[in-house]
C-alpha cells in the first residue's frame, strides 16, 4: 500500500478533524477569550474596550493577589516534595524487591485508592481531623491532649496533609517506570568496583531514576496547584488557593477582566514551574545517552 505523502496527510487530517474541531471550539477558543478579557476594562459581568493592562498592573501592585499565588505555589511545592519523597521508597521496593509476576498486583493495590471517589476521600479526612474527629477522640482518650486539637482548622498544614494523601498514588507510578529501566548490570558493576550499596544507589540508581522523579513531581504539582475542594473543606475555607480565588473573582464579584487576568497569571506560573521541571529533567536525560 503505497500511499503518497499528500493523500496520507489528507486522510490523517480528515481522521483527526472531529477531535481537533472539538478542542479548538471548546478549549482553544475559551482560553483565547480569557486572554482577551484579561486586557479589557470591565464592570459587573461585562467587558468593554479599550484594551488596557490595568488588570495586570493591579495584580502586581496588590499584595493580596501575590499572596494567594505565592501561597498556592508554596502549598503545591510542599505537597509535591512530600509525595515524591514518600513514594520513592515504595516505587524502589516494588521495582527491586518484588518478583516480576507480582509487580502488577502491587501497583494495582497502590492505584486503587486513587480511583475511588476523590470527593469522598477528601471529605473523609474531615471526619478524621475535623472538630471532635477521630484524631481528636484518639488523642484525648489516650490522655495526650485534654482539649480537641481540631487539626482541620490549622489551615495550610491541614491542606497539605489532605492533598499529599489525595495525590500520593500519582507519584509512585512514574518513579517505578524509571526504576524499571535502570540497567541492573550497572549496579553490579558499581559494587564490583568496590562501592558500597548506598553509594551505588546515590551515584547510579538515583540519577538514572530522576526523569521519573521529575515526571512524578509534575503530575502531582499541576492538579494540586489548582485544587479547589480541599481548601474549601479544611482550614474552614479561610485559606483560599488559586482556584477558590478565581471562583470569587469570576462568579461572586463577576469581575471578568480581573478574574481573567488572575487566571492567565496562574496559568503562566504553572507553565513556568512545569518548564522548570522539564529543563531540570533534560540534565538527567542528557547524561544518560
Amino acid at each position: 500500500m503505497a500511499a503518497t505523502p499528500r493523500s496520507e496527510a489528507r486522510t490523517g487530517l480528515k481522521l483527526i478533524s472531529p477531535t481537533a474541531i472539538y478542542v479548538i471550539l471548546l478549549l482553544a477558543v475559551p482560553l483565547a477569550t480569557v486572554l482577551v478579557f484579561s486586557v479589557m476594562m470591565g464592570g459587573r459581568a461585562n467587558v468593554s474596550f479599550p484594551v488596557t493592562l490595568d488588570n495586570y498592573a493591579k495584580l502586581l501592585s496588590n499584595w493580596a493577589y501575590s499572596y494567594i499565588l505565592l501561597k498556592s505555589l508554596l502549598v503545591a511545592l510542599s505537597v509535591t516534595a512530600i509525595t515524591v519523597v514518600l513514594a520513592y521508597p515504595v516505587a524502589y521496593f516494588v521495582s527491586f524487591h518484588v518478583r516480576q509476576e507480582r509487580k502488577s498486583l502491587w501497583l494495582f493495590l497502590i492505584t486503587i485508592p486513587f480511583w475511588t471517589s476523590y470527593i469522598i476521600r477528601v471529605s473523609l479526612w474531615f471526619v478524621i481531623i475535623g472538630r471532635d474527629g477521630l484524631l481528636d477522640q484518639a488523642l484525648m482518650s489516650l490522655g495526650i491532649l485534654s482539649e480537641p486539637l481540631n487539626f482541620a482548622s490549622y489551615g495550610i498544614p491541614a491542606i497539605i496533609l489532605v492533598l499529599a494523601h489525595a495525590y500520593a498514588p500519582f507519584a509512585v507510578l512514574p518513579i517505578f517506570v524509571s526504576l524499571e529501566k535502570v540497567d541492573r548490570s550497572l549496579l553490579e558493576a558499581g559494587q564490583d568496583l568496590g562501592e558500597s550499596r548506598f553509594i551505588t544507589f546515590l551515584r547510579v540508581t538515583l540519577p538514572l531514576s530522576m526523569p521519573g522523579v521529575i515526571a512524578a513531581s509534575l503530575i502531582v504539582f499541576i492538579p494540586t496547584v489548582g485544587d479547589y475542594v480541599t481548601p474549601k473543606l479544611v482550614g474552614d475555607g479561610k485559606q483560599p488557593l488559586i482556584a477558590n480565588f478565581i471562583e470569587t473573582q469570576l462568579l461572586k464579584l463577576q469581575d471578568f477582566p480581573q478574574g481573567s487576568a488572575f487566571a492567565v497569571v496562574s496559568m503562566l506560573m504553572v507553565a513556568v514551574v512545569s518548564v522548570g521541571f522539564v529543563l531540570w529533567n533534560k540534565r538527567f536525560i542528557g547524561g544518560q545517552k
Binding site: 496527510a9 483527526i16 478549549l27 492538579p223 479547589y228 487566571a263
Partner: peptide, 28 residues
C-alpha cells in the same frame, strides 16, 4: 497511523487539559 501537517500542535491541544488546572478549563 498517519503523518500530516500540524500534527504536533493539534495533539498538544488535545492533551493540554492534562497539564492545565481543571478550574481554568471550567472558568474559561
Amino acid at each position: 497511523r498517519y503523518r500530516f501537517p500540524g500534527k504536533a500542535p493539534i495533539m498538544g491541544l488535545i492533551m493540554l487539559p492534562l497539564v492545565l488546572p481543571e478550574m481554568i478549563i471550567a472558568m474559561a
